[in-house]
């Protein structure tokens, strides 16, 4: 294989693929090409990458400690030594937002890791097997769906005690049912398709059919759904933080920052606005990227 860019391009688009790795990479390349056609999606992806970059390199980027108080420079407007101003205790808002990105990202990642497999397995088994298993699993799912998610999260956090860990568990509990429903709908439509029948005619067990044929086909739509849900996860986390049920002070969580800043909103707008803008930007970025990803993964375009 040649290493210059022209050779690489040819390798990526070659009709006669030589190895399974090449075939898989070509497939990813096609998805990327469709994703890259969407400028807004790229913008979203760019913001997400920036967030990840920021979260990894905070200690080197942040100009101040997120906890260091300096009452003499409290409520300074943006500019000068403090890029985004300071809050009521004189802490640098820019640094706090940067440190907050770690919290936001870890909430998103942990919730997604908990939610995706649970939702997908519940949904795929319910959809494929049908009958009493479907009835039981879906009634449980509906039980969770019957409450507004923020109320349910509030109830859980109130019961478990306010902390960031409990907020994460509470958000995960409210986020899996929609995934399960989606996966169930997908597997319901898949189970009578001929290619699944064909696998049954090879003598495959039901377990094998679900795990190695139905689940992989559900993954794209679940990934898209979770990406779109991430905005909701961020907002719920911020909401819990705002209500004092998520991260506790002095943790620089964005929602909690908005909450404490609202007392100074009229005189010092930046204390509320800066973390608010951060929440808005990141939620929007996940939505844009999710939309583009849905278009890119849509098999109907093939």
């Amino acid at each position: 294989m040649t290493t210059n860019s022209k050779g690489l391009k040819a390798w990526l688009t070659a009709e006669d693929t030589e190895s399974p790795t090449q075939a898989a990479i070509q497939n990813i390349w096609m998805i990327w090409r469709r994703f890259a056609d969407n400028p807004l999606g790229l913008l979203g992806l760019g913001i997400i990458l920036l967030l990840v970059f920021a979260a990894i390199f905070v200690p080197w980027i942040a100009t101040y400690s997120p906890f260091e108080q300096n009452l003499q420079s409290a409520l300074r407007p943006p500019g000068g030594a403090h890029l985004l101003g300071t809050d009521e205790l004189g802490r640098d808002i820019f640094s706090r937002i940067l440190w907050g990105s770690r919290i936001t990202l870890s909430i998103i990642v942990i919730v997604s890791i908990i939610v995706a497999p649970i939702g997908m397995l519940v949904g795929c088994f319910a959809g494929y097997y049908g009958g009493w298993l479907d009835t039981i699993l879906m009634r449980i799912t509906e039980l969770f769906l019957s409450f507004p998610s923020l109320i349910l999260a509030l109830a859980f956090v109130a019961a478990l005690g306010p902390s960031l860990e409990n907020a994460v568990i509470a958000i995960a509990l409210t986020q899996w049912p929609p995934i399960a429903r989606l996966a169930r709908a997908e597997s319901l439509s898949l189970r009578h398709r001929d290619h699944i029948s064909a696998v049954r005619l090879m003598g495959a067990s039901n377990l094998r059919i679900v795990l190695s044929h139905i689940v992989p086909l559900c993954i794209p739509s679940v990934v898209v759904r979770i990406t779109l849900n991430m905005a909701g996860i961020i907002l719920t986390a911020a909401g819990l933080g705002f209500l004092g049920l998520g991260a506790q002070p002095p943790t620089p969580e964005w929602g909690a920052m908005v909450s404490t800043g609202r007392r100074f909103m009229l005189d010092s707008w930046w204390v509320v606005s800066m973390p608010g803008i951060a929440i808005l930007t990141v939620s929007l970025a996940f939505n844009l990227a999710g939309d583009a990803l849905r278009d890119a993964l849509d098999p109907r375009q093939e």
Binding site: D194, A198, L201
Partner: peptide, 14 residues
């Protein structure tokens, strides 16, 4: 073994 009517439907798309 069986061969199905619509060959696109009968093969796993991915």
């Amino acid at each position: 073994q069986m061969v199905f009517q619509d060959p696109y439907e009968a093969l796993h798309p991915r």
